[in-house]
Design a protein around this nucleic acid. Structure first.
Length: 450
RNA sequence: GCGAGUGUAGCUCAGGGGUUAGAGCAUCCGGUUGUGGUCCGGAGGGUCGUGGGUUCGAAACCCAUCACUCGCCCCA
């Protein structure tokens, strides 16, 4: 429908109940793996000062130059003349928080994770939206190849938990320091002097604005020319090479299969040393479901003291796409256990109480409390895919009984009204009741008695 | 920012200058006293995305516009 007065803004989507099954499932996997590894959750604000992103991510990157979703401040009191922007990713905001809350006073490394929406103002298409969801990890305060390996392992585990790792391949590279890259870019430009005319128009432009982007160009002519061009690893310091070698050693020890990709460069300026991405096996980089890397100078750039860090971001919508493609289903936690049907005013009153009691016990219960015919009520029960139905009519009220129907088997039996609840609990199983207690798990450790 | 395609019922789509615009699915009701999924019957639901033009006549043809989708760039 496109003649509605209002619809969701371009590039945004309602996360409908069916999508939420996936979102919930993914969040659960993320939280689970994050807690296992000692990560703590942080939620930076959804918007920050625009300058934070410009300085952190780099003002000549596409993410900042072209895709920043700026916030206009109508109705503000206007003493504030700063510009704001919706976060295009998490890292800049989290590093800002690290500095602001003096997290360098905490034991290092500080491990933080986030889950939530991010925003980029570009033309939407498959797997690319103006509002999308990411989960994100940051390990700040220490630089060691083993930390890189651990972070990669955690992301690998999550993608495996979600049963899509088989569709992906892990790409890894070391891009050295900013100085290494500056020298390399100079050499690359140098190499292409006199060869510009052989480059496709798009790549001529890249040579000007972002020469590293030439490396993963899809243009055949460019790739041919690149074969004789200097490569980035020739400009890496021995230290970077050693760092990379030990990372690969750790990954081997952890049985992680990766592809070394000397052409992998990421689009954000803050990265150095280790970079990695998970690519779609069939279509390649365009549909990366996640990526990350080390950013050892970002915090200093943002005004903190020199502090190394490494991070990763995964795209939830892209992961869901892969799950759906390969038939991975997310469990439905909203399954209706019991549908309660009633006939007559007395029955209705009793049902109202019964429904409440069932719910209190943690049984997902839906009741038809309208005046519809029993036939309509049973249709409803069927449409809700309720596993069991309880039927209470005038006759049952008189006799003090109730009918329990198994909606799958299609069989039913009458029983004492009081027996209904224990019977249902037995059928569903105590373990499957949807209960919670805010009191539980305040302390989970036993005294070893040493 | 650049390029292409598509807009007809809640969904998937058919129709293609000529009375009151169709199907399947979905929804709601019914097929005798109070029983769902299959079957049968019925009902509700559409400014044919919007605006303009051509025409005796436009949902159809033309133009513009908006929206969505898909590429490119780039990224999750």
């Amino acid at each position: 429908m496109s003649n509605l007065e209002f619809q969701s803004p371009k590039g945004t989507h309602d996360v409908l109940p069916l999508d939420h099954q996936y979102h919930t499932y993914i969040k659960k996997a993320v939280r689970h793996r994050a807690r296992q590894a000692g990560f703590k959750r942080i939620d930076p604000p959804m918007f920050e000062e625009r300058a934070l992103f410009e300085r952190g991510i780099g003002d000549h990157t596409d993410v900042v130059e072209k895709e920043l979703f700026t916030v206009s401040k109508k109705g503000a009191d206007d003493k504030d003349n700063r510009d704001y922007a919706l976060r295009p990713e998490f890292t800049a905001g989290i590093c800002r928080a690290y500095i602001e809350h003096a997290m360098d006073q905490l034991p290092q490394p500080v491990e933080l994770y986030s889950i939530g929406p991010c925003f980029r103002y570009d033309r939407p298409q498959k797997g690319r939206y103006r509002q999308f969801h990411q989960f994100n990890f940051e390990v700040i305060g220490l630089s060691d190849a083993s930390l890189d390996a651990q972070l990669i392992l955690m992301t690998w585990k999550i993608l495996s938990d979600l049963q899509i790792m088989g569709r992906l391949r892990l790409q890894i590279n070391n891009i050295g320091t900013a100085e290494n890259r500056k020298e390399y870019v100079a050499a690359l430009k140098d190499y292409f002097i006199g060869k510009e005319r052989n480059l496709p128009e798009l790549d001529q432009k890249r040579l000007e604005t972002n020469p590293l982007r030439l490396l993963d160009s899809k243009e055949e002519d460019t790739q041919i020319l690149l074969k004789r061009a200097p490569t980035l690893d020739q400009f890496l310091s021995d230290e970077s090479k050693k760092y990379h070698a030990s990372l690969l050693e750790y990954l081997d020890a952890l049985d992680i299969t990766y592809e070394e990709n000397p052409l992998l460069v990421r689009g954000l300026d803050y990265y150095n040393q280790t970079v990695f991405e998970y690519w779609d096996k069939s279509t390649g980089a365009q549909n990366a479901v996640g990526g990350g890397g080390r950013y050892d100078s970002l915090i200093e750039t943002l005004g903190g003291k020199s502090t190394p860090g490494i991070g990763f971001a995964g795209g939830i919508e892209r992961i869901i796409w892969h799950m759906k493609e390969s038939g991975v289903e997310a469990p439905n936690k909203d399954q209706v256990d019991v549908f309660v049907a009633q006939l007559g005013p007395e029955a209705k009153k009793k049902c109202l109480v019964l429904v409440n009691e069932l719910r209190e016990l943690g049984i997902h219960t839906v009741g038809a409390l309208g005046e519809a015919s029993l036939k309509s009520q049973m249709r409803l029960a069927d449409r809700f895919q309720a596993r069991y139905a309880l039927l209470l009519g005038q006759m049952e009220v008189k006799e003090g009984t109730i009918i329990l129907k198994d909606m799958v088997a299609g069989k039913q039996k009458a029983m004492k009204f009081e027996k209904a609840i224990p019977e249902i609990v037995k059928l569903i199983g105590e373990d499957n009741l949807d209960t919670y207690s805010i009191k539980d798990k305040l302390g989970k450790y036993a005294d070893p008695g040493i």
